[in-house]
Measured scan of single mutants.
Amino acid sequence: HIECVVCGDKSSGKHYGQFTCEGCKSFFKRSVRRNLTYTCRANRNCPIDQHHRNQCQYCRLKKCLKVGMRREAVQRG
């Protein structure tokens, strides 16, 4: 199976330009649609994997963008 490029979980297909799991797909869509801004409580390099992906939204969104998920691919409302 193909892994989610963000957290390594099982990918459910290509979403917003990259293969991601449902969790990262939904997180990215929600973040972009609502134009959410997050803050990192650590050093902005938190581990984002299957077990830690919900611990830091700032670093999760940063990783989504770093691996090539595209904001412009998210349809507005």
Rank of each mutant, 00 (worst) to 15 (best):
59 C>P: 03
64 C>W: 02
76 R>V: 11
34 R>Q: 12
63 K>S: 03
54 N>T: 09
73 A>C: 12
43 N>C: 01
11 S>G: 09
5 V>R: 15
29 K>T: 12
68 G>F: 02
54 N>K: 08
31 S>T: 10
42 A>S: 12
29 K>G: 13
64 C>A: 06
6 V>Q: 01
28 F>I: 04
71 R>K: 14
66 K>I: 09
48 I>M: 07
61 L>P: 02
4 C>Y: 00
37 T>D: 14
44 R>E: 13
3 E>A: 11
65 L>M: 09
48 I>L: 07
34 R>P: 05
61 L>Y: 07
41 R>S: 15
32 V>N: 06
37 T>C: 10
67 V>S: 08
35 N>C: 15
73 A>V: 09
24 C>P: 02
45 N>H: 06
54 N>E: 13
31 S>Y: 07
72 E>W: 05
72 E>Q: 05
42 A>T: 05
40 C>W: 02
13 G>M: 10
28 F>Y: 04
12 S>Q: 11
36 L>E: 14
26 S>P: 01
63 K>G: 03
56 C>Q: 01
33 R>T: 13
61 L>A: 02
52 H>C: 08
52 H>S: 08
67 V>C: 08
47 P>G: 07
64 C>D: 00
22 E>L: 08
65 L>H: 14
72 E>D: 11
56 C>V: 01
69 M>L: 10
57 Q>N: 14
57 Q>L: 06
57 Q>S: 09
30 R>I: 04
15 H>N: 14
8 G>S: 13
75 Q>W: 08
29 K>Q: 12
21 C>K: 01
52 H>I: 13
36 L>W: 08
66 K>M: 12
29 K>M: 09
46 C>Q: 07
64 C>I: 00
32 V>S: 04
63 K>D: 00
71 R>I: 13
65 L>Y: 09
44 R>D: 13
12 S>P: 08
17 G>C: 05
5 V>D: 09
73 A>L: 10
73 A>W: 10
36 L>P: 12
30 R>Q: 04
52 H>R: 07
18 Q>N: 04
18 Q>V: 15
77 G>H: 11
19 F>E: 14
72 E>G: 05
11 S>C: 15
55 Q>S: 09
66 K>N: 12
38 Y>K: 01
60 R>G: 04
25 K>C: 13
70 R>V: 12
44 R>N: 14
47 P>K: 10
71 R>M: 14
43 N>S: 11
33 R>L: 14
3 E>T: 09
72 E>Y: 07
12 S>D: 15
41 R>D: 13
73 A>Y: 09
1 H>N: 13
61 L>I: 07
71 R>D: 11
39 T>P: 04
2 I>G: 00
72 E>N: 06
13 G>W: 00
14 K>Q: 15
11 S>E: 05
31 S>C: 13
25 K>A: 13
3 E>L: 10
25 K>E: 15
10 K>N: 14
58 Y>M: 05
32 V>G: 04
25 K>W: 11
47 P>N: 02
52 H>W: 05
38 Y>L: 08
44 R>P: 04
76 R>K: 13
60 R>W: 14
61 L>M: 13
67 V>W: 05
75 Q>A: 14
11 S>Q: 11
72 E>H: 03
16 Y>L: 07
49 D>C: 02
52 H>Q: 13
32 V>K: 07
9 D>L: 06
40 C>N: 00
66 K>G: 08
29 K>I: 06
14 K>S: 15
60 R>Y: 11
24 C>R: 01
11 S>K: 11
5 V>E: 10
19 F>P: 14
51 H>A: 12
26 S>E: 14
36 L>H: 13
7 C>F: 00
35 N>A: 09
62 K>V: 13
4 C>D: 02
14 K>Y: 09
34 R>W: 05
8 G>H: 06
67 V>M: 13
5 V>N: 14
64 C>R: 00
76 R>I: 11
11 S>L: 05
13 G>C: 00
30 R>N: 10
5 V>F: 15
6 V>W: 03
29 K>S: 09
62 K>W: 07
25 K>M: 15
55 Q>W: 13
43 N>T: 09
42 A>Y: 14
43 N>M: 06
40 C>A: 00
23 G>S: 07
1 H>T: 13
16 Y>W: 14
26 S>R: 10
77 G>Y: 05
77 G>E: 13
29 K>R: 07
72 E>F: 05
50 Q>F: 05
51 H>T: 08
2 I>R: 04
63 K>L: 04
23 G>A: 07
12 S>T: 14
31 S>R: 00
74 V>L: 06
44 R>G: 14
75 Q>Y: 06
72 E>A: 06
53 R>D: 12
19 F>Y: 15
77 G>F: 05
21 C>T: 01
46 C>W: 01
2 I>M: 09
27 F>E: 03
51 H>G: 12
29 K>L: 06
12 S>R: 06
35 N>W: 04
49 D>E: 09
18 Q>D: 13
40 C>H: 00
70 R>I: 12
45 N>A: 09
43 N>E: 15
34 R>A: 15
62 K>D: 12
57 Q>K: 04
3 E>Y: 15
44 R>A: 13
5 V>H: 15
15 H>R: 04
25 K>F: 14
38 Y>H: 00
8 G>R: 11
30 R>L: 06
46 C>A: 03
33 R>I: 13
31 S>E: 04
37 T>P: 12
70 R>C: 09
1 H>W: 07
14 K>P: 15
37 T>M: 06
27 F>V: 02
